[in-house]
């Protein structure tokens, strides 16, 4: 059996007419969902009356401390995300389970960040009374939109090679900025307390 070295590689079955990718919808749907999520969160935070208080975990002095530690946990897993992404793309030497590590560290980071965001939006709302606060509010809403887009893009096949790293990098950058404007600020202001 001879192999034609010039034949197109077939990593997936050739697309018949029924299986053709739905064109711009691949990008449009994630983009629209991302916009809807980000704007929706922002509007909720702006419109509803922030309660100032919310469910608190036992063993912590304040919800601020709980959130700062949860956010720091999310940030730690985001760093794992960055490293494991380089491994998946072969830019760093990594174990075979780098892809699984990337998936699961991402899930943990996301799930840990959700309660923080819920508290932010429920108890504090979308605020603009300071530079730090304004950026944190805007980026916080943007993050969940960007993350939704990333998740939805993962489901599409045959994306341009640069797209996922770009969106992933964006998600990581935004999370970093959110962490800098909240948890780091909290620890610098109140000390590293629980």
């Amino acid at each position: 059996m001879t192999v034609d070295p010039n034949a197109a590689t077939q990593s997936f079955p050739p697309s018949g007419p029924a299986h053709r990718a739905p064109g711009p919808a691949r990008y449009l749907v994630p983009a629209l969902v991302a916009a809807a999520v980000a704007v929706g969160l922002g509007v909720y935070g702006k419109v509803h009356d922030p309660t100032g208080t919310a469910f608190n975990l036992a063993g912590f002095s304040s919800t601020g401390a709980v959130k700062s530690w949860l956010a720091s946990t999310a940030f730690f897993f985001a760093l794992v995300q960055l490293v494991s992404a380089f491994m998946v793309y072969g830019k760093l030497p990594g174990p075979r389970w780098a892809a699984a590590l990337h998936r699961w560290s991402g899930r943990i980071a996301f799930l840990v960040a959700v309660p923080v965001a819920v508290h932010c939006l429920y108890a504090l709302g979308y605020q603009t009374y300071g530079t730090r606060v304004m950026w944190h509010s805007a980026l916080g809403c943007f993050f969940f939109g960007a993350f939704s887009a990333k998740m939805l893009l993962l489901r599409s096949q045959r994306l341009p090679g640069w797209l996922l790293p770009l969106v992933g990098g964006l998600v990581f950058t935004v999370l970093t900025l959110i962490w800098l404007t909240s948890a780091l600020w909290f620890f610098r202001t109140f000390g590293v307390t629980t």
Partner: peptide, 22 residues
């Protein structure tokens, strides 16, 4: 792949759960 969708769904459910708790 259903994984990413499940992740989003889990986050949504967790968020709603926390909200109801609040």
């Amino acid at each position: 792949r259903p994984g990413p969708l499940l992740t989003l769904l889990a986050g949504l459910l967790l968020g709603l759960f926390m909200l109801s708790l609040d």
